[in-house]
Structures are given as structure tokens and as C-alpha cells.
Nucleic acid binder design. Structure first.
Lengths: 233, 233
DNA sequence: CGACTGACCAAATGGCCAAAATGGTCAGTC
DNA sequence: GACTGACCATTTTGGCCATTTGGTCAGTCG
């Protein structure tokens, strides 16, 4: 909002795209505004018409990445409501939110990226809500209500454990030091099964409950999307 | 074995103790051999009678730490065989193996420590067997045999998932970025419960099976201990 | 004789400073 | 009035040198 130029203009898009490509190639530290401007075919000053600082630009980049991930999740969920079942849903979210090229840098421990996001106060509070820990609690709450998740444990403990499991799968796949035993099946399938065991219900809640849960989860994700859009626009 | 001096002599012990204290205080990079020698009340050359390089000394230090952890686990297991039950056992191992002051440096991502262990070929193969991934597979195999762990999933997938869960709990507690939702109960209890859900059996295998499993697990841990002792002295 | 030492050496480290590069601005162009 | 690139202050880089450090070994001492 302090910037007078709309971030969804075609020029802003070109800048973001150029920035994304260069960032993936050189890393956060090496990429320069001059380089981005040149690649986008605009002057250096133009970049600063859209974002006040380099940090803002990069944060916006991550924000856009999260948005497309959310869209993709929503699309899948609308196409097949059965994907709300905890195991499937976790795999879906993990793949889309954490495995995207940019976001991966955060979760594979990129020092620059981590520091940037942590120090960027405005985005911090927003993107924190997109973090696994927040999503876990929100989504688990919904799934519990509709009988898709066992309710014989307190929500926060369930959320804590699920969060740990997701972080663990993430780390196991991205950080060499944490590599796990070899498996034949796809990692997604193992994850889905593990989540099912951890929080799943034995009784089938029925189609109606699944559909209701799907709607509600999509609503929550939509709200998150909205929040990110308005804050990072 | 290339060093002519026994590592369990009282002098070696004094050097190791001094090294441990200084290492915890200053970090790996800052601690110097001269400092260690002085603190141990020996000449610098003497240190090199026991270990060929500084790296070897530090690796030996980590090895000793793992050994005391293994001893502690074994002691607890012998005092209360019920601790073999997967949930309890995982909590026990996690606390003792990963939370020890020195080892923590490894798992909380200390750059120096990680590089050191990764590059040190001799120790690498040995300490790798003490890593969660290897332990998971070995121990799970035993617990499955005695009906303490469900067998409706392949061992390697079970091991992969359990390993991820443990890594996740570890990361959640040590790395700020991965912090999870707040919980009231002790993290150990949540961990034990989660492990129980993930791999536990519903049917009680009976006292005899528990005792048999305990013996076998202790044997495996003892072999690991032996291996570390012979390779790192 | 042999465990032990600390002065000694080559290599790595850290501080220092000038040169280059970079984030950010703004007077001026189209 | 959208856009630019020369310009400035600040940061980063690279090279230099004094200091430190890992590792050795001729010599001491029990």
C-alpha cells in the first residue's frame, strides 16, 4: 500500500518472473536489482516504483509462490473432495506448499532466505499463518468436527505430533544429513499412510461429512489466500 | 589403531574431559589443541601421541558421548523392560542419543560439527549406524517379531515413517523455524503417544514377549556399542 | 629406554583497508 | 506522469600481512 503502483500490472509480473528465474539460478544473495531490471527489460528505478526495497520484492515473490500453491490445492480439492481425508490432504499440502522450488529454499535451511523472512515483520505474521504449524491446527480442527480425525486426543497435541511428522518427512527428503531408510513405494503414499495411522479414524464418516469438511477446508484456505493477497498484493 | 597409545588410559581420559569442557564452551572452531593440552595439564605433543589429528580427537569425543548414551539406555532398559514398548523406547532413545549436549550440536545443525562428521570417513560409517535411520530399522524389526509393533506394513516403510517422526520431533524442539504449536503435556508423552499410534499394536503381546524383545534390543545396542568402541577406541 | 615436552614450521585464520559492487534516489527524458 | 540510468552512501569483496594454529621432532627427564 505504500507503493503507488499495482503489483498485478503486466510490468510487475515481468519483473517478478525475471526475479524468480534469477533467484533460483544464483540464490538470494547473488541476485541484484540491476540484474533483475535488465532481465525484465526495465530500468532499475522502475523496480523501485513497485517495491520499496529488495526485501519487499523477494517477499512478494515467496508470497506469489504460496498463492499458486494454494490455488493448486484448492483446484485439486474441488475436483476430488475425497482428498480432504487427512492422509491425502497432508500429502497434497506438503507437495504443493513445501516442495515448490522457491519455498524449498526456506525449508531446506537456506540461511539467507530464513533470515529474510524472519526479519521481514510485515510478511512474517502473514506467512507464519501459512506455515505447517498453523495450518495443522486449523485444518485438524475442521477434520475433527466432521469425524475424519480421531478425537480421543487433545487438538493441540495431535497438531503438534502431525506437525512434527510433516517436518520430519520434509527434512528427510531435503536435508542429506537426515536421510531415511530406502523405500520402494512413493514417499507420498508412505506419508499418507503414516498420517492416517497418526490421526485417522477407523469409522468411515460418510460422503456427506467428507463434502462438508472439504467445503470448510477450502474456505479456510481461501481466507488464508485472501490475507496473503491483501498483505503482499 | 595407528596410534600406539591406548585411549582408555587415565591421561587420555583427562585430555578428553578437558576437550569436552572447552568444546562446549567455545565451540569446535575456537577450541585449540594447545588450549586443551594446557587444561589437561599435558604438553601439546602428548595429545598427538593419542590422536593423529584434531579431527580424530573430536570424533572420539562424540563417540564417547554416544557410548554413555547407549549405556544409559541399556541401564534404563534393564531396570524396566516395559520401556521396549515402541513409544517409550523412542522417547528414551531420542532423549539420550539426540539431546546430549555434544550430540545436540550435530542435530541442531552446527555447521562445523556436521562437516567434520561427514568428512571423517572412518567414523562416518560407524556413527551412521548409530543414526536414527539405522536404529529405527533394526529395532523395529525386533519389535515386530515379538508382536510389539504392527506388521501390516512393510518394515522399511514403517521405519521410514518412524524415522521422519523422530526427526520431526527433534527439529521441532531444536530449530526455531520449525517450532510447533504449544502443548501442555510433556513433549516426551506426546512423542510416545504418537509413536504408539504410528507403529503400535492394539493387542497386548504379553510379559514374556516384552522381556524377550528387551533382551534382543539390548543385544543390538550392545553390538553397536562394541562396534563404536573398537572403531573409535 | 621410552614417555613426554615445548620450541619450531608451514599452513590456515583474522583483521585491515582500498577497490568494486550494490541498494536505493532523483533530476531529467520521452 | 511513467520511466530511466547516472549518481551517492553503504556494504561487500579481495588482497595483503601479522598472528594463530595444527602438527612435528629433537631433546629432556624419570
Amino acid at each position: 500500500m505504500p507503493q503507488p503502483f499495482e503489483h498485478d500490472s503486466p510490468k510487475a509480473f515481468r519483473i517478478l518472473s525475471a526475479a524468480r528465474e534469477l533467484l533460483l539460478e544464483h540464490g538470494i544473495r547473488k541476485v541484484t536489482i540491476a540484474e533483475i531490471a535488465r532481465a525484465a527489460g526495465v530500468g532499475k528505478g522502475t523496480v523501485y516504483l513497485y517495491w520499496a526495497t529488495k526485501e519487499d520484492l523477494i517477499v512478494a515473490l515467496f508470497g506469489r509462490e504460496v498463492l499458486t500453491a494454494l490455488d493448486e490445492i484448492d483446484r485439486a480439492l474441488s475436483a476430488d473432495p475425497e482428498l480432504v481425508r487427512p492422509g491425502r490432504l497432508c500429502a497434497l499440502i506438503l507437495r504443493n506448499m513445501l516442495n515448490r522450488a522457491l519455498a524449498r529454499r526456506l525449508h531446506s535451511g537456506d540461511e539467507d532466505a530464513l533470515r529474510l523472512m524472519a526479519h521481514h515483520s510485515a510478511s512474517g505474521s502473514v506467512l507464519a499463518r501459512a506455515a505447517p504449524s498453523a495450518l495443522c491446527t486449523d485444518v485438524l480442527g475442521i477434520l475433527r468436527e466432521h469425524g475424519l480425525v480421531r478425537v480421543d486426543r487433545p487438538l493441540n497435541e495431535q497438531s503438534y505430533a502431525l506437525h512434527a511428522l510433516l517436518v520430519g518427512f520434509m527434512a528427510t527428503e531435503t536435508v542429506a544429513w537426515f536421510a531415511g531408510p530406502a523405500i520402494e513405494s512413493s514417499s507420498d503414499q508412505v506419508l499418507a499412510d503414516a498420517v492416517g495411522l497418526l490421526v485417522g479414524h477407523t469409522a468411515d464418516p460418510g460422503h456427506e461429512a467428507v463434502r462438508a469438511a472439504t467445503t470448510q477446508v477450502r474456505t479456510v484456505l481461501g481466507e488464508l489466500r485472501e490475507e496473503i493477497t491483501t498483505h503482499l498484493g
